[in-house]
Computed example of a mutant assay.
Amino acid sequence: MLETRIKTRSDLKGLLMDAQDLFRDATTATGSKADELRNRGLNLLDAAIEKAQDAQSAAVSTSKEFAQSAGEYVRENPWKAVAIVTSAALLASLLARRRD
């Protein structure tokens, strides 16, 4: 999952940088060369938008699965869940006190 996020972020950054370069080149180009560069830039931006939407869909899907799994665990193990939450709250409280 983390590797997918890193790869997606890297892909998006690369696509956007390529699009910026193409648009910079298009500002100095004229005629059909400018049109070609602008079209390539727009295609790159479309690809970046599609990648971002795919990443968003994957994140939403993963979070829904996680929430469902957590809900099932709490329903099956209510006292364990209470103990885990209480322990986490106590630990957070102790850590917060140390900072003061």
Rank of each mutant, 00 (worst) to 15 (best):
M1Q: 02
L42G: 07
A88L: 06
N43R: 06
Y73R: 15
A19W: 02
T86S: 09
L95P: 08
A88K: 04
T27C: 07
N77W: 15
A92E: 08
K80F: 10
A59I: 03
A19F: 01
T30A: 03
A88Y: 05
T4D: 04
R24F: 03
M17N: 07
I6H: 01
A83S: 15
Q20M: 07
E76K: 12
L16C: 02
W79I: 15
L15E: 04
G41A: 04
N39E: 12
G14N: 14
A96V: 12
D46I: 09
T30C: 01
R98A: 11
Q53G: 01
T4C: 01
A48P: 02
G41L: 01
A52I: 13
A52S: 10
E3P: 00
V74T: 13
L12T: 10
E65I: 12
N39C: 12
D35R: 03
T28R: 06
T8W: 14
I49Q: 13
Q20L: 12
L44A: 13
E76N: 13
L91M: 03
S32F: 06
D21C: 11
S87L: 12
Q56N: 03
S87Q: 07
E76M: 15
T27H: 06
A52C: 08
Y73V: 11
L91C: 02
T30M: 04
K13M: 14
T86Y: 11
L37Q: 02
D11A: 06
S61I: 11
Q68I: 08
Q56V: 05
L90D: 02
T27P: 03
D11R: 03
A81P: 11
